[in-house]
Simulated scan of single mutants.
Amino acid sequence: MTMRYEVISPEKVECIQDMCNELMRFQQSKATITPERFDGMSFETRMIPSMESAVENYLMIVRDKENIVGYVYCNISEKEVYDNDFATFFDMASVSKEHVGCLSQFYIKEGYRGAGIGSVLFEKAMAWLTSFDTIEDIFIYVSNGNDDALQFYQNKGFQVTHQILDGFITVLRNVPNLSFHEENRK
C-alpha cells in the first residue's frame, strides 16, 4: 500500500464531499448522546461554512492510487467564530490571542485505519497549525461515542478540558510547550 498525501486548495474542496458526508454518518453511528443532531450535518452545512468563516484553511487528502481514503481539515479562525447560536465552544477569556487553530475534521476510511495514516495526517496538520506565530491555542472537538478518536488525540498530547451540549462534544486543547508546537513554530 503506497499512500500519497496531497494538500488541496479550497477551490477543490468538492473532492472530499462524499468522504465528509461519510464522516457525518460515522459520527452519528458512534453517538450515544443525541445522535439526531447529526441529521442536518453534511458537507454543505459543516465543511463549507467552516471554510468560509476561517481566516486560513488547510486540507490534506491521502490517496491509495486514485482513491481518496482519508483527509484532515484544519483552520485558523477568529476566536469569536466559536461563540455562536449552536454553542460556546470554549471560555473566550481563556484565549489571549485574537485567533485560534482548530483541527476541525479528520477521517480515514475503514480498512485504512491502524496503518499509521492518521499519525501522518495529524503531524502534517499540527505542523501547519503551529507554523503561525499568531496561534497559541489549538482546539479539537470530538463527538460523543468516538472513543478511539478521543484516545488518539490524548495520546498525541491534547487534554480534555470540558464537554459542551450536555456531553455531545468533548473539547480538547493543546498543552503549552508540546514538542510538536515548539518544533514547528516559524
Rank of each mutant, 00 (worst) to 15 (best):
G167E: 10
Q28L: 09
E6W: 07
S104W: 13
L172M: 09
N75Y: 13
I33K: 09
Y82Q: 14
N84G: 01
M1Y: 11
S104A: 15
M1G: 06
T88N: 06
Q154N: 13
E80V: 00
D91P: 00
G114N: 07
I16H: 03
E36L: 01
E14L: 12
F89A: 11
N155M: 12
Q28G: 04
F43I: 12
M19P: 00
V69T: 03
D147M: 00
Y141Q: 13
F89P: 02
I140P: 00
D166R: 10
L59P: 05
L129F: 08
V171N: 08
R46M: 13
Y112T: 04
N21M: 08
D133Q: 13
N177F: 15
N67A: 15
S96Y: 15
G145L: 05
E22R: 14
R25W: 02
G118D: 07
A54E: 07
E11D: 14
M126N: 08
N84Q: 05
R113W: 05
Q163E: 15
S53M: 12
N67H: 15
Y107T: 11
Q28S: 11
E36R: 05
A149P: 00
Y73S: 04
S42H: 05
I135V: 14
N146L: 02
H99Q: 13
I140R: 02
N57F: 09
A31P: 05
D147G: 00
S131I: 05
A93E: 15
D39S: 14
L172A: 08
T170W: 00
C15T: 12
G101I: 03
E98Y: 02
N177I: 07
N184C: 10
L150V: 07
S29G: 10
A54Y: 13
S42V: 08
F168N: 14
I68N: 03
F152M: 07
E98H: 07
